[in-house]
Design a protein around this nucleic acid. Structure first.
Lengths: 156, 156
DNA sequence: TCGAGCGGTTTTAAATTGAAACCACCCTGT
DNA sequence: ACAGGGTGGTTTCAATTTAAAACCGCTCGA
């Protein structure tokens, strides 16, 4: 469960969150939670994974503060799993993943779900990274700056 | 290697790309590739993973068209691994992951790398999802529309 | 009080991971 | 020619993780 990462990775800002999510199942659970699923059985039916795995993944998400349990909500004596603010912070990541999937994993004419703005019903725009002045920047237009040392290339 | 996902997932637009990436190591390899790393040994030294694992992950990334091998580049008789356009399409996802990490995985005063605009040297803006009319939309402002059926809630 | 649904845990086999050893190829020096 | 080192892997094997299935306990309604 606790995958050890190198020091370089622990400061890098990418490996640490990856470690918290755990594995892909966790991300699919989070996606379903955004969909409004809350109950153990709902996740299990939606994802089709074994109950012990789901149990372990939920426990991990709870331990990392990505989800939390709330007592009842609709009378039943069971608890429900809901996203915390930290968990809701994963929304852009899921959108990025979805848009990447739309770009490269579906044939142009292949049917797939579409993320639309609830108010207008129109598809949302593409995620774009912008600099402070509003320019859209790509990977090559960015670099990472290390904490106190001199700048260095890449997006590390 | 080939994790089976349900039909619901195969159309969902999230599970399919997840399956292609494979696991977290692959995403760290892609991150390093954005950093300019190209050689087997560079990846291995940077990530500190076993050579057989790196070999398997690179093979998987090649198989999914996320990276490709190019013959030489600098005289050496070896091949190099570079991102394809599909692989470069993962940039927003990595940025989303990084920004989430910055938000929730570092103490306010804790040193961490910063993604900056290369031209201005200033930090990049936050990724924002916008509707066609330019409004910033969050998870609750969106829904998914299935291919030919009636609309349905959630971000599925 | 019986049974069913829900939410797990335990058990067990199978698959995956990862460390280390091994190997092949090319280049360099002598 | 050939010894040695760097690079890029594959193979081997033990240990961990995964996953399916059985089991368990609780609550509720009949």
């Amino acid at each position: 469960m606790a995958k050890r990462v190198s020091h370089r990775d622990s400061i890098c800002g990418v490996a640490r969150p990856l470690d918290a999510i755990g594995d892909w199942w966790s991300l699919l659970i989070v996606r379903d939670a955004f969909d409004g699923l809350r109950r153990f059985g709902e996740f299990q039916k939606s994802l089709g994974l074994a109950k012990n795995i789901l149990s372990a993944r939920l426990r991990n998400l709870l331990a990392h503060g990505i989800m939390e349990t709330v007592p009842a909500a609709d009378g039943s004596p069971y608890q429900e799993y809901v996203l915390t603010e930290k968990g809701r912070g994963l929304f852009p990541l899921l959108v990025a993943l979805r848009q990447w999937g739309e770009d490269f994993f579906f044939e142009p004419d292949e049917a797939h779900v579409l993320l639309v703005d609830r108010k207008s019903g129109l598809p949302v725009r593409r995620l774009e990274l912008r600099a402070q002045d509003g320019r859209v920047v790509g990977a090559g237009d960015t670099m990472v700056r290390l904490p106190q040392t001199s700048p260095e290339n890449g997006i590390a």
